[in-house]
Simulated scan of single mutants.
Amino acid sequence: MSYENIILETDQKTAVITINRPQSLNALNAKTILELSRALDEVSADPQYRAVIITGSGEKSFVAGADIKEFSDFGTAAAEDLARNGQNILFNKIENLNKPVIAAVNGFALGGGLELAMACHIRYASENARLGLPEVTLGLIPGYGGTQRLPKLVGKGLANELIFSAKMIPAQRAKEIGLVNEVFSLEELLPKTKELANTIAQNSPMGISKAIAAVNQYDSGHGFETEIKSFGELFEMEDKKEGVAAFLEKRKPSF
């Protein structure tokens, strides 16, 4: 499949998706959101891929936000559709993908860009990254899940502070509050992210898929039951049989 605003590449068993709109600091427009969604469908269906990395082109920006000129004249109904459709076709899809998605945040991650990173399962950032949700400066609020995912990551108080103040925070502060997992130099960011992805790719695809589903239920009231059922279901699957056999035979498993 060909794309205009993104680049899909392969690194061992990892799909690397690069948002490639450097002229607009990789801002998310409707076409880019749709292309990202289609790329994720392609990756999800292809067993050669075991993990996904999402990053931005250039050295300044992961995603600098949404493309505001696309919705500046919307009314209520159109704006609700924009938020709902974006969440359904991309942001929720990332969170619930059957393969782990890692954000390599290489610069500005603002508004929809930070929401994109927060939808990913893991976030690595470069030292020059700046993260924030500036929507209230436009008389708006985050519309792609920011008000829901940020409190889960950093707590309600810090989420309120960041959303209400609209301030940007540096990468190191983002790590301190749990918004990103690790911080690296810009040169190290993608290699370190690929290293993590390729480590994950050596493990059981079915185990990881079930783990994603279980972790996503941790605050739903159904988390323990999801874990128990998933644990049981895995006992009938080939990955479990190979993993246990490899352990007993003192060899590396071949998933």
Rank of each mutant, 00 (worst) to 15 (best):
K252M: 03
P170T: 00
A214V: 14
I208C: 00
M168V: 04
L189N: 01
T137E: 00
Y144H: 08
R251Y: 00
E95W: 05
L153S: 08
S61T: 15
S2N: 03
V52W: 03
P205Y: 02
K210A: 14
G145Q: 08
R84Y: 09
K241M: 10
G113A: 07
S57E: 14
G155H: 13
L189W: 10
A45W: 08
S185D: 04
C120F: 14
N216W: 13
D67Q: 12
L82C: 00
N92W: 13
K192V: 05
N181Q: 13
A159W: 03
E242G: 05
R251F: 01
L248G: 02
K241A: 14
G111E: 10
G207H: 15
M168W: 11
F62P: 03
L8Q: 02
P134E: 02
D41R: 13
Y49L: 01
E249D: 05
T55K: 08
L40R: 04
R149K: 05
V154C: 04
P191C: 06
K252G: 00
R149C: 00
T137A: 03
D46N: 02
I19T: 06
S72R: 06
F224T: 10
A211M: 15
S37W: 03
K156E: 15
M1E: 09
A201P: 15
R84A: 04
S165E: 14
L150M: 02
Q87N: 07
G75K: 14
I89W: 03
L158F: 02
L28K: 09
G113D: 06
F164E: 03
E182F: 12
I17V: 09
G146I: 07
F231C: 08
V63I: 09
E4Q: 07
K229Y: 12
L133G: 14
Q172N: 12
L150I: 06
S37K: 00
L131R: 06
L131T: 07
S2Q: 01
L25T: 09
L25M: 12
E4Y: 09
L36E: 07
N160G: 04
V244N: 06
F235S: 08
E70Q: 13
I54N: 01
N203G: 03
I163Y: 06
L110M: 13
I54T: 01
F164M: 07
E225N: 11
A83D: 07
I228C: 07
L40C: 04
A197Y: 12
G243Q: 07
K69L: 11
L131S: 02
A64I: 15
D239S: 08
L116Y: 15
K241N: 11
Q48I: 11
A51W: 15
A214F: 02
T55V: 07
A15M: 01
M168H: 10
A159I: 03
H222W: 12
